[in-house]
Simulated assay, not measured.
Amino acid sequence: MLGSAFSQFKNIYNQKSLINQFTRREISNRYKGSYLGIVWSFITPLIMLVIYTFVFSVVFQAKWGAGENTSKVEFALLLLSGLLVFNIFSEVLSKSPTLITSNPNYVKKVVFPLEILPIVTLGSALFQALISYVILVSALFLLMGVFNWTALLFPLVLIPLVLFTVGLSWFISSLGVYIRDIGQIINLALPALMFMSPIFYPISVIPKEFHFIYQINPISYVVEDARRTIIWGELPSWDWMVYGTIIGVVFAAFGYIWFKKTRKGFADVL
């Protein structure tokens, strides 16, 4: 079964020109008709960063770790690095339940490769992440005078997350055709997952009896590696890179198998 899935991945690769075309359209449609256009891709993360930083470091007087003297600038950069990772996952998963139901015309076209739709959504999310990454690296250099060469390893850090996310997206987008309530469930789960991930705080401040929650959360490892490579100039956890990639491949394979198996009933339901 897995072998069949891997052979089918070649078909997805052969659709790379179509994926590229749809991804470009997805990005352009995001700000279609607005006066500032793609500039909003830079403005939005900056505004959200200011809001989160004000709330957590000014209103709640939050510090990064117990007893650590973290400046508001450093706190903001640590926050942005975590949000950068989580937003990739969040953007794709929030759109997944309606990916198929909002494109019934593609379902009726037997030759159209529906399996590329989650990849297109992921591509759009990665484009936004690239902009946030540029903002983060630039701010780190301009405000703190630091540029770590390990920041160039950040794309490698995202590999497990990309595989895990696209696998879940295939599963959820298919499930959303048959169970419309899945969208409401995802909308509840994503905010909970955001606060249960080490985005606004380090894992070191969590009581040890709750560490297992973060150990089974793959986003935690990616967030931590993002901070290691970009902010602190350290190498990522190579053990996690290996294990995480294997887990991601398994999720992607099973998600794709599920999607292909259930696709046969899409037209009947829609």
Rank of each mutant, 00 (worst) to 15 (best):
6 F>D: 09
8 Q>V: 02
8 Q>E: 10
9 F>V: 11
11 N>M: 08
13 Y>S: 10
14 N>P: 02
14 N>W: 03
17 S>A: 11
17 S>P: 02
18 L>W: 06
20 N>K: 12
20 N>Y: 09
20 N>M: 10
21 Q>D: 11
24 R>K: 15
26 E>N: 06
27 I>F: 02
30 R>P: 04
31 Y>K: 05
32 K>W: 10
32 K>S: 13
32 K>P: 03
34 S>D: 04
34 S>E: 04
36 L>G: 07
37 G>M: 10
39 V>K: 06
39 V>P: 02
40 W>D: 11
40 W>C: 14
40 W>R: 09
43 I>K: 05
44 T>G: 13
51 I>V: 15
52 Y>F: 13
53 T>D: 09
53 T>L: 12
54 F>T: 13
55 V>K: 08
55 V>L: 10
56 F>I: 07
56 F>N: 07
59 V>D: 08
60 F>A: 12
62 A>T: 14
63 K>P: 03
66 A>Q: 08
69 N>I: 08
70 T>P: 01
70 T>D: 05
73 V>D: 00
75 F>L: 05
75 F>T: 01
77 L>S: 03
78 L>H: 07
80 L>Y: 01
82 G>Q: 07
85 V>E: 00
85 V>P: 00
85 V>I: 11
86 F>Y: 15
87 N>M: 12
87 N>W: 09
88 I>V: 14
89 F>A: 01
90 S>H: 13
91 E>N: 11
91 E>V: 12
92 V>R: 00
92 V>I: 11
93 L>R: 00
95 K>H: 10
97 P>K: 03
98 T>R: 06
99 L>F: 02
104 P>Q: 11
104 P>W: 08
106 Y>W: 07
106 Y>M: 07
106 Y>F: 13
106 Y>T: 01
110 V>E: 12
110 V>T: 13
111 V>A: 15
112 F>L: 12
113 P>I: 03
115 E>V: 05
116 I>D: 02
116 I>R: 00
116 I>G: 00
117 L>N: 02
120 V>Y: 00
120 V>W: 00
120 V>E: 00
120 V>H: 00
121 T>E: 15
123 G>Y: 05
123 G>M: 06
124 S>V: 12
126 L>D: 03
127 F>H: 09
130 L>P: 01
131 I>N: 14
136 L>R: 00
137 V>Q: 03
137 V>H: 07
138 S>T: 13
140 L>S: 10
143 L>D: 15
143 L>Q: 13
143 L>R: 14
